[in-house]
């Protein structure tokens, strides 16, 4: 059963085709990789899926709770509320806020108390705030960041900042998680740990994951299927072993280390 279908998604920036006719399908619970050389348009695909750029043409359809919803052209916050969360390639945490606040902010879309309760601190304010706090702490606990809840996000070491971005995305309670180069800048040990964590998250949070990654060891190890993007077009699709032996993919990556993966 598909959870997301992307049909002929296209984006041009003033005549420059960044993404051309990209079609993809994500099955529920799948872990799919999106790879390709630098500048192939991978992050642009994420930006189109999350509404940061409106696509020039093409459709994005989400199937959730037996409902079919078209997502293209919607604002990012609405797409997030529909259930797609993401991380950013160049970490975009709320740097001057605490770890806890970063997570709590991502939970705001579920908070129901209104302005009246806000100003006058009614009961619903206290009960909901308490719930948000507890849920945030649970998440931080699971991903081993709880002891740093009062640190400013910018003071975390690099690896933990990447983890916090994932926690923050999880806090929005998504059904689909888009990870943009989660292992960038990590050493092999950290990458191995992250690989485990991603697989574990998928099981425990009932997620479908699409991830962009340059680290082939990670991609080949955990992804069930892979899409390869080059010059904004999908040039191959298949299981890791199919992709490894695909001629067009090897051409596109010529000079990059494919064999070692």
């Amino acid at each position: 059963m598909p959870i997301l279908t992307v049909n002929k998604l296209t984006k041009s920036f003033g005549g420059l085709m960044a993404v051309t006719n990209v079609s993809m399908e994500l099955e529920k619970g799948e872990l799919v990789g999106l790879i390709g050389p630098n500048g192939a348009g991978k992050t642009t695909v994420f930006n189109l899926l999350t509404g940061i750029y409106p696509p020039t043409s093409g459709t994005v359809t989400l199937f959730r709770d037996d409902k079919e919803e078209r997502l293209e052209g919607l604002k990012p916050h609405i797409i997030c509320k529909k259930g797609i969360a993401r991380t950013f390639q160049n970490i975009r945490l709320f740097r001057d806020l605490t770890v806890l606040d970063n997570v709590r902010i991502a939970m705001n879309k579920n908070v129901k108390y209104g302005l009246f309760s806000t100003f006058l601190r009614t009961k619903s304010y206290f009960s909901e705030e308490k719930e948000v706090l507890e849920k945030s702490m649970q998440l931080l606990e699971i991903l081993k960041l709880a002891h740093k809840k009062d640190e400013l996000a910018k003071n975390l070491p690099y690896g933990e900042q990447r983890h916090l971005e994932i926690v923050r995305a999880l806090a929005t309670d998504p059904c689909i998680l888009l990870l943009d180069e989660p292992a960038a800048g990590m050493n092999p040990a950290e990458t191995a740990q992250l690989t485990e964590m991603i697989a574990w998250m998928r099981e425990n949070f009932d997620l479908t994951i699409l991830l962009i990654e340059h680290d082939m060891s990670l991609v080949m190890k955990i992804c069930e299927r892979i899409y390869v993007l080059d010059y904004g077009m999908v040039i191959a699709e298949g299981t890791p072993s199919e992709i490894k032996s695909n001629k067009r993919v090897i051409e596109a990556y010529l000079g990059e280390e494919m064999g070692n993966a």
């Binding site: 999350t50 509404g51 940061i52 604002k75 990012p76 916050h77 997030c80 509320k81 969360a85 993401r86 950013f88 975009r92 945490l93 709320f94 740097r95 001057d96 806020l97 606040d101 902010i105 991502a106 705001n108 879309k109 923050r168 995305a169 806090a171 929005t172």
Partner: peptide
């Protein structure tokens, strides 16, 4: 406050 910190990230978190 999250909008002040990073509007695009805030939007992507459902705000």
């Amino acid at each position: 406050i999250s909008i002040r910190e990073d509007e695009i990230a805030a939007e992507s978190m459902g705000i």
